[in-house]
Design a protein around this nucleic acid. Structure first.
Lengths: 160, 160
DNA sequence: CTAAACTAGGACTGTTCCAGTCGTATTTAG
DNA sequence: CTAAATACGACTGGAACAGTCCTAGTTTAG
């Protein structure tokens, strides 16, 4: 354990990409294809980032996502919490939740301090830094990757 | 995600307790009862810590576990790695393992740096510190004498 | 020598929770 | 009106963790 969820991973990848695109809105489909991420899953991640005020969305046919705030104000810690919820090192909450073993737990406080330090490590990195350190082709946009990129269209109500 | 496994949690609790008992070996049963941990599961955790050279065991009827090294040389990072294996923030390994999305991943290096910082946070805390900060009834601790101290089993200790 | 209490360790089951999918509604542009 | 996009809830599958069971080997007491 002690790893990021895939959703959080996808969120960071997406934010980095969106930030690298400046004012041009990036659609979920575009992000998914460029990074090999399941579209439907990615969509939910992006929507949650919108709810949390990290991204803003533009609906409609030429819609997509943009950063809601400057890239250097969005920390990795914030993204992790937005997707996975508050960081808890153990099941018996980090604060004052109750668990049967609570009173018998001899390492509550030190663990709490370690948690704070981990959050600190996550908070020390912003999306802006992610963008600067990425190694990513800026906007090449390969239309055909080993065949029809759009071939995987899902069935929609054909003739009715 | 981004939480410790129960096993790691149990390992830290056990090490803290074992360390607090000085030269008296603590049995798996004793640790399990005092902290409400399933005995069989705990046993495997302790065995792994022996294999990793963190604990040493004493077999036979009055057997149990002792620290294999001074408490201030055992870090939380080491315990986490002993139980959960090497820390990986994402499935596509932190180093040079391969995953399909690897080449398309735009946040590899920053994530790697964050991982190092987290390990640093874990390495900064030793079992010795855990012992000092615990809030645990020390169980009648005439350790200096060693040998005969048979700690009574306490079923419920509700402090605070 | 035998029984009891312990460690050692493999095999097995149960369960949770993440990852991914599906279906449908809504918005926007041409 | 239709196509392409966001929005969102409900559902399924599966991997990995959590926990159990069983057997073997070790040491001490009587």
């Amino acid at each position: 354990m002690l790893r990021l969820s895939k959703k959080t991973d996808y969120a960071l990848i997406s934010l980095t990409y969106v930030a690298s695109q400046g004012d041009r809105p990036a659609s979920a489909r575009e992000i998914a294809e460029r990074h090999d991420i399941p579209l439907e899953l990615l969509a939910k991640v992006l929507q949650r980032l919108v709810q949390r005020g990290v991204l803003k969305s533009q609906q409609g046919i030429h819609g997509g996502y943009l950063l809601a705030r400057p890239a250097d104000t969005v920390t990795v810690a914030e993204v992790v919490e937005a997707i996975d919820g508050p960081l808890q090192l153990t099941v018996c909450g980090t604060s004052d939740e109750r668990c049967e073993q609570f009173s018998k737990c001899n390492i509550r406080d030190p663990l709490h301090r370690i948690r704070d330090r981990i959050i600190g490590a996550l908070a020390a990195c912003t999306v802006s830094e992610l963008v600067n350190d990425r190694h990513d082709e800026p906007v090449a946009m390969p239309i055909a990757i080993g065949g029809m990129a759009i071939a995987g269209r899902r069935s929609h109500g054909s003739d009715h």
